[in-house]
Simulated assay, not measured.
Amino acid sequence: MAKNDTLKTASVLAFERKLDPSDALLYASNWEKRQDDQQWQPVEVREKSVRGTISNRLKDSSKEHKDPAKLDAQIENPNPQSVDVATLPHNADTLVARFTLRVLAGAGTPSACNNAEYQAKLEQAVAKYKQAQGFGELAHRYANNLANGRFLWRNRMGAEQVEVSVRQLAQGKTTKEWTFDALSLSLRAFEDTAELKELSGVIASALAGEQHLLLEVVAYVRVGSGQEVFPSQELIMDRSRGDKSKTLYSIGDDKTGAIHSQKLGNAIRTIDTWYPNEVEEDLGPIAVEPYGSVTTRGKAYRHPKEKKDFYSLLDNWMLKDQVPTKEDQHFVMATLIRGGVFGEAG
């Protein structure tokens, strides 16, 4: 399609996410009986009170910094805290994390767009991507992040064994199952095994709209009896409602620990290795975000000044007919699969 100088970005432009995970519920089991879900016990989030000590960095101008007696006086005062905690019982050595994942068709098709000409141009570009590239590369990377247990976050660290079972469900029954030794797979590279190829093919087929796909993902993590496990931590906006210094996410009357669906989604879409990296940091893949945001480092790896952010790439592709490189096309499509509101504000 020829360049159209009158084409403008739609002011209303939204995309629904195409990888749709549930929350992950956490259970306790024993490694030898991990496959028997009748033996699973919910991991309960409970509250405990502890006595903390002053350990924060003191300002050079503070009284405590200048006068040792002042600091001693502060240390003598107890610092009681109430925190949430989740642990395995002392008769169970394995954490079980279970969630479902829907893979939806329609990647690149906006759920809302108030500019028909822009939508037609976008759909044409997406169709060319599907024909030339397909969803194989993206699906391969998503499959790796299911198989390697990246979605377990801190629960994966220091585990003795981690097994991930991915089951394809149809009408409530398992039609296909893949089992992976998660610790044998890298978190920094995307590996290629026969089982990963098969799982990738199913995901790619679902993204292309060729089949319906619902996956059940179950991870078994051998960490040791009585060990602490890590549900998601809640962000409390109003501290006046309670005095707990840490609140963990739980579901139901039995307060079963859980991991947020947003946190699972972030892990699954940690596939961006195409970002500019001039200093060659050993960072590995980052989550697909419009600006390549990595909050733990306080840095955007796709800054607009480099024209490698999602908006610059999309505008150049749609408005200026500057077709991105193959890697940048993967990133743009992965961002559309992620979903979001991307219209141009007035």
Rank of each mutant, 00 (worst) to 15 (best):
E16F: 02
Y249T: 13
V221E: 05
Q124H: 10
K59I: 08
Q81E: 08
A204M: 07
Q161N: 12
G265D: 04
H212R: 15
R34D: 09
Q131S: 10
A28I: 07
R338K: 13
A2G: 15
R102N: 08
V279Q: 15
L214H: 04
T87D: 10
G339I: 01
L235G: 12
T87Q: 12
L207H: 05
L71Y: 04
E216R: 09
T175F: 02
E234T: 14
L264K: 04
A2T: 11
A2P: 08
D23G: 09
D243A: 15
D272P: 03
S62Y: 04
Q81T: 08
E278Q: 14
L58E: 05
A86C: 03
Q211H: 10
K176V: 05
G209W: 14
K263P: 05
D321P: 00
A105D: 13
L169S: 01
E234S: 12
E327W: 05
A116G: 06
V279G: 11
V83A: 06
E16M: 09
T9S: 12
S186V: 06
R46Y: 13
G340A: 03
H330G: 00
Y118G: 02
E278Y: 06
A345C: 08
E64S: 12
S61D: 11
V332K: 02
K128A: 11
N4Q: 13
Q74G: 05
R98W: 10
D72E: 14
G265V: 04
T335R: 00
V162S: 01
R239A: 15
Q119L: 07
F310I: 02
A147M: 06
E195D: 15
R46E: 12
S250A: 15
P285M: 06
V341S: 07
L122N: 09
P78C: 03
L88S: 02
K130W: 11
N4P: 04
V126P: 02
T174Y: 05
A92D: 06
D321R: 00
K255W: 11
M1H: 09
Q233V: 15
D5A: 13
L336R: 00
A189L: 08
P110T: 00
K320T: 04
V279T: 14
G292L: 05
Y27D: 04
N56Q: 15
V43W: 03
Q35E: 15
K246N: 14
